[in-house]
């Protein structure tokens, strides 16, 4: 009797714990022998941002081409090396490092294993077997800056950066330039969260900005930005003046809804991942080069869903600036 009770206690305990622990995004099939690995940064694969974009791209390739894919999450900086090594030692055909913080680790592993193939997003690694992919975030941010500048009712918009790095600086500078181009009177408030994985900080920073009169906030801060969406949603629900968020990296209206997502600065991490991975599948992979994806290469931009909230005249203006940037008529500052 007692034993049965104890056993069921253990079961209940286990069940309650399961709710938290379900779900795996790893999948594999054996139609093709090609194996692609991916190492996330500390944001994790469900960051609703570039880690997730990259993984979704690999999942799409897995579906279409039948390649084997797998990811490893990094719990701390010290995991980068062993995680990359795990794939390299297992003879993966390509190992992705997602995010600039993996730069040193990718460099070291690539140097130690010259026959391996690696690729990195958002950082430039100078090694013959590494393909680096960076984005002209300043160009895309310029365009959402145009949207923000034209649509702000309070003449105040906010920007929340994850941490002061060259990549995030490109977001900030481009956004400011875009706002200034269409609305020189608008003020852009800049803050930094100091973290890419702290939605709570994002939420409180957003609250400060909105309280301060900003009606549009553009977070470039990984999952910290989720807190910004959270704050905006709850404000809109309580009534009061309407506030907006500009999504980042992905089309975040799909995640957080059209009520708060004005538009998104989409960084086509997925396109980049698909492109480089396809090169490996095709056997045309070339290491040692850096690909900068800007508006011209369709590496950054606004998603189609923008038209739900952004009026046509504003979108027309955006298109106009886009062409000017592509043609080189406007040079968007990067730092």
């Amino acid at each position: 009797m007692n034993k049965v009770f104890k056993l069921s206690l253990v079961m209940v305990l286990a069940m309650s714990v399961i709710l938290a622990g379900c779900g795996s995004k790893s999948s594999s099939s054996n139609k093709s022998g090609i194996k692609i690995g991916m190492v996330t940064d500390v944001g994790g694969v469900n960051d609703k941002s570039f880690n997730q974009s990259a993984w979704e791209a690999l999942e799409a390739l897995n579906k279409d081409k039948g390649i084997n894919i797998k990811y490893l999450q990094s719990k701390s900086d010290s995991d980068y090396n062993p995680n990359l090594n795990k794939f390299v030692k297992d003879n993966y055909d390509l190992t992705w490092g997602i995010g600039f913080s993996l730069g040193d680790a990718v460099k070291q592993v690539a140097t130690e294993n010259p026959n391996s193939k690696l690729a990195i997003i958002d950082s430039v690694v100078d090694a013959p077997n590494v393909q680096s992919v960076t984005f002209a975030e300043n160009e895309g941010s310029f365009l959402v800056g145009v949207v923000a500048g034209m649509m702000t009712k309070t003449n105040k918009v906010g920007f929340i950066g994850g941490a002061e790095s060259p990549v995030i600086k490109r977001f900030e500078v481009g956004f400011k330039a875009g706002v200034a181009a269409v609305n020189p009177n608008a003020e852009v408030k800049i803050t930094y969260a100091g973290a890419f994985d702290k939605p709570d900080i994002g939420k409180s920073l957003a609250a400060t900005l909105y309280n301060d009169g900003a009606d549009i906030v553009f977070p470039a801060a990984g999952s910290t930005g989720n807190g910004v969406f959270n704050e905006a949603t709850s404000r809109n629900k309580q009534g009061g003046s309407k506030v907006w968020v500009i999504g980042v990296d992905k089309d975040q209206s799909l995640e957080f809804g059209d009520d708060v997502t004005l538009t998104s600065m989409v960084k086509r991490v997925d396109e980049a991942v698909k492109k480089v991975t396809q090169e490996v599948i095709d056997g045309t992979f070339q290491g040692g080069k850096t690909e900068v994806l800007g508006l011209k290469q369709n590496g950054v931009g606004l998603p189609d869903t923008s038209k739900k909230n952004v009026p046509a005249d504003v979108l027309a203006k955006v298109e106009e600036y886009k062409q000017k940037i592509i043609s080189g008529e406007i040079k968007v500052p990067a730092e």
Binding site: V17, G21, K25, K70, L72, Q73, N83, K86
Partner: peptide
């Protein structure tokens, strides 16, 4: 835990559990 993810596709959250 990385091995559990790698070898048995167990998500790292489970290792934390």
């Amino acid at each position: 835990s990385a091995g559990m993810s790698f070898g048995a596709d167990v998500p790292p959250e489970l290792v934390k559990i």
